[in-house]
């Protein structure tokens, strides 16, 4: 070990990536850890304050609690709107028919656009007065004067629906990839077993899609806690009336950047990171466990 000559090549090759990532991500992450234990709030000077930020966050900040709850509701709704829709579309598109490829391309389109743009577009669509959505309801004979994005009953669902419109194409492609990996013989065999398409889906297709679905759920769940753009554009200033569309990332930006509560913002950032990390951890663990059970399905 001591006499061995160290080959400098790998270190030199790694240097630029590690330096850039280190300086602009890793060091700031450490900064978040440190600042989370200070009461730094511009323009006051910075002081250590121990766990005060965290007790405030967990005990007192009822808007953070609301934002967190909203985040979980959004997570739940976006799973329905994104993954379930994608699954349904994938099954519809599994049959052979003309233009099948075109549909897949079409559903993926919103993925390539800036979320801000989609947000503005849907702000117009979901408008109370003359919005396309209300106009569509009206033409179906339903009374439509709902202001979708500020009504406490519908606002989160409306944003989740937009998010479903954007991401279902993405999950569709993932699920199609998963379907493509299912051996044909297995499906043929199942067809002999039962005539019920629903039974075949539940007992054969779904279990075989498990790993793809785990990936989808993981992406959807961490995505829900990283969301910002859509909520910023659709949710309105300070998260809608009564913070009904406030989520942790938007609340963080308001606290840290509008109000300059850097220390408190960092504590919230830390909490968010722990949540995202925990979700990622849980699903990685599940995915690993499942892999051992079903070794014939390799990714």
């Amino acid at each position: 070990m001591s006499g061995k000559k160290i080959n400098p090549a790998p270190y030199l090759f790694l240097a630029p990536a590690v330096l850039i990532f280190g300086l602009f991500v890793a060091v700031p992450v450490l900064g978040t850890f440190l600042l989370a234990f200070t009461d730094w709030s511009w323009p006051q000077p910075m002081r250590w304050c121990g766990l005060a930020n965290f007790t405030a966050l967990l005990r007192d900040d009822f808007i953070f609690h609301r934002a967190l709850a909203n985040n979980f509701i959004y997570l739940f709704l976006s799973m329905i709107f994104e993954i379930s829709t994608a699954l349904a579309l994938a099954l519809l598109l599994a049959r052979r028919f003309p233009g099948r490829g075109a549909f897949r391309i079409l559903f993926f389109t919103p993925m390539v656009l800036p979320l801000v743009l989609v947000g503005f577009l849907f702000r117009f669509i979901l408008r109370a007065d003359g919005g396309l959505f209300n106009a569509a309801l009206a033409s179906l004979g339903l009374p439509g004067e709902v202001d979708w994005l500020v009504d406490r009953r519908f606002a989160l669902a409306a944003i989740s629906m937009v998010s479903g419109w954007i991401y279902c194409g993405f999950f569709l492609v993932l699920i199609q990839a998963g379907l493509g990996r299912i051996p044909r013989e297995l499906l043929e065999a199942a067809r002999l077993e039962t005539d019920s398409a629903w039974k075949r889906f539940v007992h054969v297709t779904l279990p075989l899609l498990r790993e793809v679905l785990v990936v989808c759920v993981l992406l959807c769940a961490t995505g829900a806690f990283k969301a910002f753009d859509l909520f910023y554009v659709l949710g309105g200033r300070s998260g809608g009336p009564g913070h009904i569309t406030e989520i942790v990332p938007t609340w963080l930006v308001q606290q840290a950047f509008e109000l300059k509560h850097y220390g408190y913002g960092c504590a919230m950032a830390l909490a968010l990171t722990i949540i995202v990390g925990a979700i990622a951890g849980v699903y990685v663990k599940i995915a690993m466990g499942r892999k051992k059970e079903a070794p014939h399905l390799e990714f």
Partner: peptide
């Protein structure tokens, strides 16, 4: 890969 941007956003701004 899994770090959300918020994990480093505030110090990054200061940096």
């Amino acid at each position: 890969l899994i770090l959300p941007v918020q994990a480093y956003l505030i110090p990054l701004r200061l940096l």
